[in-house]
C-alpha cells in the first residue's frame, strides 16, 4: 500500500514540476476525464477489493475450537472472564491459548474504552450497554501488550493490559487453576 501511495505522490508532483518547464496539452479531456476520473476510479476499485477481502478474513466465524472470553473495561482497568473457566476473573491480564481463535466479547461499565492488542488484531470499542465481539488469534505462545485506545480521562495513558498466550499444556493448567 505504501509503495502504491508513493508512486501516486511521485506522479502528481512530477506532473506539477513539468508544468513549470513546458506548456503542454491543456484540455479538459486529458486532465479531467483521464486523470481526474478514470485514474482514481481504477486505483480505488483495486484498493477496495483488497480491503474487503482482508476485512472478510478478519471476521469472527463459527468454529469448533473457538475460545470465548469476556473483556470488561472500566476507568482504568480491564477484567477478563472465561467461558471455559466459570467464575475465574483476571485483572489486566488476559489468558488465551496460542494457535486457537479467541472471541473476545467486549463491553464497559463506565465510559467508552477500546480493546486493542496491536500484534493480534485491530481495535474494537467497549460501549456501555453494547457487547462487541472481536476475533483474535496468537500464532505463538508469549506475552503481548494491549492498550485501551479511546480517551477515557486522566488515567488513559496507563490504561494498558497484557495478553498471555499459552501453549496447550499451559492453557490446561490455567483452566484448572494453575497460573493466575
Amino acid at each position: 500500500m505504501l509503495a502504491g501511495a508513493g508512486a501516486i505522490l511521485a506522479l502528481v508532483l512530477g506532473l506539477i514540476a513539468l508544468a513549470f518547464t513546458r506548456t503542454g496539452p491543456g484540455t479538459e479531456r486529458v486532465w479531467i476525464a483521464g486523470m481526474g476520473l478514470a485514474f482514481p476510479l481504477t486505483v480505488l476499485a483495486a484498493l477496495l477489493a483488497y480491503g474487503l477481502f482482508v476485512g472478510e478474513r478478519l471476521l469472527p466465524r463459527q468454529g469448533a475450537d473457538v475460545v470465548s472470553v469476556q473483556a470488561e473495561g472500566r476507568q482504568w482497568a480491564w477484567s477478563f472472564a472465561y467461558d471455559d473457566a466459570p467464575g475465574v476473573v483476571t485483572e489486566d491480564v488476559l489468558h488465551i491459548p496460542a494457535g486457537r481463535p479467541v472471541d473476545v466479547a467486549i463491553t464497559t461499565v463506565d465510559v467508552i474504552h477500546s480493546f486493542w492488542v496491536p500484534r493480534l488484531a485491530g481495535k474494537l470499542d467497549a460501549i456501555p450497554g453494547h457487547v462487541n465481539v472481536l476475533r483474535i488469534e496468537a500464532d505463538q505462545p508469549g506475552r503481548y501488550r494491549g492498550a485501551s485506545a479511546e480517551f477515557s480521562g486522566e488515567g488513559y495513558a496507563d490504561h494498558e493490559f497484557e495478553v498471555i498466550a499459552h501453549d496447550a499444556a499451559g492453557w490446561d493448567q490455567f483452566l484448572r487453576g494453575g497460573t493466575r
Partner: peptide, 30 residues
C-alpha cells in the same frame, strides 16, 4: 463495506479538482 466504499469514493471528485488545477498549470505559464 458500504461506508468504506463510499469513503474511498470521495477521492474521485477531489482528484478531478486536483487534476483540473494541474491542467491549469500546464495550460498557462506558472
Amino acid at each position: 463495506a458500504f461506508f468504506s466504499a463510499a469513503s474511498t469514493l470521495v477521492a474521485v471528485p477531489t482528484g478531478v479538482q486536483v487534476f483540473a488545477w494541474i491542467g491549469t498549470m500546464w495550460k498557462g505559464r506558472p
